[in-house]
């Protein structure tokens, strides 16, 4: 913890940041005074810190903040900067690498940020088993699989609320003309299909949605397919660089043809 605490202390004392968003115990906490830093922890529980930071920047339009970033947080941060939800000049990311245990539990391919201040980089292993099993099924079987999964949905909006990439002011999922209100499960597959489409070019595979889902719907596998398709169709992978343009938001000269091999 020491290198991280030292760095945060230094930033706070020099007045370079007004606060540091990290964890105290298992919960997110905004450290604003050096004396509080004894409580700074890197909890194995994860929260969408960049999403909280976006709100903080909105609340304090002049404020500059330090942010604890794991590999997944960094990818989220990059996407939020790209979508103008976070101003990059007002955030100082401090990188933490996840330990082997967490990396494996999350099935994370890249459990570390670009610059690591704390911890050792370990190699993760991404879980593709369910996706491969689904791809091996025939159409009808796959349809039955997803419908039985979506039937478990209690429309708690947990997947949306925890998602670091869900930042719209008004949410399509609450639009009753699109998703009829008052029914559980919500319209299948419309509810989850809308969310899946919205994840195109955004999802950074942090896996928080699946962790949050009380019904145990394999959401991450659904969005993994979204990520795979976006990569195949548009050669784009969210969360890698601030410069690279997102395929749906940016048209460039506009020309687009489905790659021949995918037709």
């Amino acid at each position: 913890m020491e290198p991280l605490k030292e760095r945060v202390k230094e930033l706070l004392e020099k007045g370079e940041i007004g606060g540091f968003l990290g964890y105290r115990g298992d919960l997110p906490y905004l450290f604003t005074r050096a004396e509080e830093l004894d409580g700074l922890a890197v909890s194995p529980r994860r929260y969408p810190l960049p999403q909280i930071l976006a709100k903080l920047q909105g609340l304090y339009p002049e404020g500059r903040f330090g942010l604890l970033v794991r590999g997944c947080d960094e990818r989220s941060l990059i996407e939020l900067i790209k979508n103008n939800k976070i101003q990059s000049e007002r955030v100082v990311p401090l990188g933490v690498a996840c330990d082997q245990e967490l990396a494996e539990r999350c099935g994370c391919e890249r459990p570390y940020p670009t610059e690591v201040l704390l911890g050792e980089k370990v190699e993760g292993k991404e879980g593709w088993e369910l996706l491969e099993r689904l791809e091996a099924m025939d159409e009808e079987e796959r349809f039955r699989f997803w419908m039985s999964q979506f039937a478990k949905c209690i429309k708690c909006y947990g997947c949306r609320n925890i998602c670091p990439q869900c930042f719209c002011d008004t949410c399509a999922l609450e639009e009753e003309d699109l998703i009829a209100g008052g029914t559980i499960p919500p319209e299948m597959p419309a509810f989850h299909l809308v969310r899946a489409f919205h994840m195109a070019g955004r999802c950074v595979d942090c896996g928080l949605c699946e962790e949050a889902c009380p019904a145990g719907i394999p959401l991450r596998t659904l969005y993994k397919e979204v990520r795979r398709a976006v990569k195949d169709l548009f050669g784009y992978e969210p969360g890698l660089s601030v410069e690279e343009k997102e395929p749906f938001g940016y048209l460039g000269d506009g020309r687009y043809e489905v790659p021949e091999r995918l037709k």
Binding site: L134, F197, L222, F234
Partner: peptide, 21 residues
């Protein structure tokens, strides 16, 4: 129309994945 081509390409893959031709 460029935009709609991208959207439809993406949507087709999602439909396929959910088991809709």
């Amino acid at each position: 129309n460029y935009l709609v081509k991208k959207r439809v390409a993406m949507m087709k893959d999602l439909l396929r994945f959910l088991g809709i031709n």
